[in-house]
Design a protein around this nucleic acid. Structure first.
Lengths: 236, 236
DNA sequence: TTAATAGTGTCTCTAAGACAGTATCCG
DNA sequence: CGGATACTGTCTTAGAGACACTATTAA
């Protein structure tokens, strides 16, 4: 904080916001990518992002929300978190830049509805893609690093928080919840241990009388006790 | 990422880097503050910070290192970590701004040496202060929030990593290490449980033959097994 | 020998992991 | 009734917490 207000100001870096938006599709973890329609990297798939609008945005989180709603056309996710800020002279060919990266988590149904509204699987490219995280194309800028960090954060938090529940709709069974945790973590979890731990944390509560009907014994439907992320002791 | 390279560029926010540098003094947790010599908030104590130098800095971490060495005149800490990016139109009276905040941890001896070089406790104000974290003055900008978040992160990581060891010099006894953890966490820790846990994590190793001589039984001196932060399972 | 700090041994209790068992639906 | 999935009980084991005990120095 060296210069006085009116002093000649240093060259200010370019500031953007980039978002890694996770969701489930076909029981696998996916992220949203958009096809760029401007240089640099025109026509390449990249993370959704954009400039801060200093006239409108109250902060960069607001920027992220605006981009998710505007570019992707999906409902603003219940969970959104600032991830890390990437910077330097080479990450963007336009010059020294700062990218405030966010990660967010969208329920599978919201993602499916948005993709359905867009195309009808008829090959028409709408510019928005839902890509499995373990089968990503090489991404422009340093977006590979951003996704990498987002994945690590998501997996890390899955071991000690309710984060994977945000991939599910409002009502879910314990087995559906366990599936979501397994998809995120990439490992199998012991059924009864998972159940006990989750219930002990009282992070979920029964929706009285509501049961999921299948072709077997119906399962109790639960909801999160709080709309906020709940952290508990480590290790699942 | 909307506009083409040569399109009229949006008003870019002001980008600064602010640092919360922790150290121990008189067995209490302190941070460094500097007296501002420019508007806004001239003459107020604030976090050390500054603009990104796009000609010199490879990224904002580099900016943080440069500011620590330059403004504070202390050795660059072994542990430095990006904390969070604060942003918005009101946090800085100069306009819409982005502050990439860092936290860092400096060994007590380095801090003491730096403060000794500066003043000699004769009341001469050198513009640099070492202030206990539980007795901070109100800070300008949103620096109160920044310090708050830095403290939470430091305390959080103290429960599952070797972070508090970075407050100590290269050789330390287990009791000195426990003191550091207690200072950071603000709670007492069981002696034998702490010892067992720390040794199980093999985060430290004996320096063979080196003992700390006091007026009682000498204590084994240890060092970190790795210069990098080591994380272990939760709860201390 | 005593005071003080360094370091060890061990008992208890909680909770994770594993797995077997019971319950309730559909056909 | 059999198959399938939902849910419960319980045994074993690892590790945290508490605390008593032993060790080694200076005075």
């Amino acid at each position: 904080m060296r210069s006085s207000p009116s002093a000649s100001r240093r060259q200010s870096p370019l500031v953007t916001v980039d978002i890694t938006l996770f969701t489930l599709k076909d029981d696998r973890l996916h992220i949203f990518l958009v096809r760029r329609d401007n240089e640099p990297y025109r026509d390449r798939l990249a993370l959704p992002g954009g400039y801060v609008h200093t006239e409108d945005d109250a902060d960069t989180t607001q920027t992220a929300r605006r981009i998710i709603a505007g570019k992707l056309g999906v409902p603003v996710p219940a969970y959104i978190e600032q991830l890390y800020t990437f910077s330097g002279p080479v990450r963007d060919p336009r010059g020294w830049s700062v990218a405030v990266a966010y990660m967010a988590v969208l329920p599978a149904a919201d993602a499916a509805a948005a993709m359905h509204r867009l195309g009808h699987a008829d090959g028409s490219d709408t510019g928005i893609g839902l890509v499995p995280v373990d089968d990503l194309p090489p991404l422009p800028f340093d977006h590979d690093r951003i996704v990498d960090r987002a994945l690590k954060r998501l997996r890390g938090k899955a071991t000690y928080s309710s984060l994977p529940a945000f991939l599910l709709p409002d009502g879910f069974t314990i087995n559906e919840l366990r599936d979501a945790y397994e998809q995120v973590l990439g490992t199998e979890l012991q059924r009864s241990t998972f159940r006990r731990r989750i219930l002990e944390q009282d992070m979920i509560e029964e929706i009285p009388g509501v049961m999921r009907q299948g072709s077997q014994r119906p399962a109790q439907v639960y909801r999160l006790t709080s709309s906020a992320l709940k952290e508990f002791e480590r290790t699942i």
